[in-house]
């Protein structure tokens, strides 16, 4: 299977031992170091440093235009596609800078899957939606293997039982919630290590939202998940770490429980309690 080979020694943070202070924090998977993003002259993100641990969910919250999506998009270099966009600082995945010249953004995006606000299945069959990336990266050696990958991805996305009898139906024929899970299956199919989600539930009804949240909870056993959400309740429900952004700056980050019961910063307090001016 093709995979980015780390070219620099891995900068894994050692797992702290469990102590009276609380449970051990999993090692860092993605580390942002002084990341700033500019759109032309305008600076959208200011000097953000944040560690995102593996096998856990990090929620990015903040008002519209605070830079949280910009930050998310810098992790898999989606900002490359925007003209005049410039990123400084380092995004390290397992210690390797994603902006290094040797990194192929196409392979990077296989390693770092992304799910968007609006489900965006390809105008293809359910099967081909999931198979597309697998084919592109040549990850399946045979037809049988491809079928196995498609089935296991749809199973992991909690969609298999709903679509197993109509794999050749168009992906677009599914409901919004099913489409979102199809897109997640598509992201999982290429064996990513990190999944980025940009408001994955904002277009879904509460039942479909609950299914996606349940899925996120299951996926965190194997992946590092970073989710942007406007729903405080969702951030509280699904994440273990919460980072609050405001005006392009990272204001506060900490265990989700602490951020939602006793935040340090008054700006965080004002935002999550609905007092923002």
């Amino acid at each position: 299977m093709s995979r980015m080979e780390p070219i620099v020694p891995q900068l894994r943070v050692e797992t702290p031992r469990p102590s009276a202070a609380g449970p051990a924090v999993p090692p860092t998977k993605v580390a942002a170091r002084s990341v700033s993003v500019f759109y032309g002259e305008k600076q959208a993100l200011f000097d953000v440093s944040l560690d995102m641990p593996e096998k856990s969910v990090t929620a990015l919250i903040g008002p519209s235009g605070c830079g949280k999506s910009t930050f998310l998009r810098s992790i898999n270099r989606m900002n490359d596609t925007i003209p005049n966009c410039r990123v400084t600082g380092e995004i390290l995945i397992d210690g390797q800078d994603v902006n290094a010249r040797s990194v192929d953004p196409v392979l990077l995006r296989a390693q770092v899957g992304m799910v968007f606000q609006k489900p965006n299945p390809f105008p293809k069959s359910i099967f081909d939606n999931v198979a597309y990336g697998v084919r592109l990266h040549g990850l399946a050696g045979s037809r049988t293997e491809m079928q196995q990958i498609v089935e296991s991805s749809l199973r992991k996305a909690g969609l298999w039982d709903e679509v197993k009898d109509r794999l050749n139906a168009p992906g677009m024929s599914l409901s919004g919630g099913q489409q979102q899970r199809l897109v997640i299956a598509r992201a999982i199919a290429v064996s990513p290590e990190i999944i980025l989600m940009d408001e994955p539930c904002s277009a879904l009804d509460p039942i479909a939202t609950a299914k996606v949240e349940e899925l996120i909870d299951e996926l965190k056993a194997n992946y590092c998940i970073i989710i942007v959400t406007h729903s405080m309740a969702q951030a509280a429900r699904v994440s273990q770490q919460t980072a609050f952004f405001h005006l392009g700056k990272l204001v506060e980050t900490g265990p989700t429980e602490t951020v939602f019961t006793n935040p340090r910063e008054s700006r965080t307090q004002d935002y999550i309690t609905g007092r923002f001016g």
Partner: peptide, 9 residues
């Protein structure tokens, strides 16, 4: 209202 942070406390 689902109060949070200081409101919750």
């Amino acid at each position: 209202r689902q109060p949070l942070a200081r409101d919750l406390r």
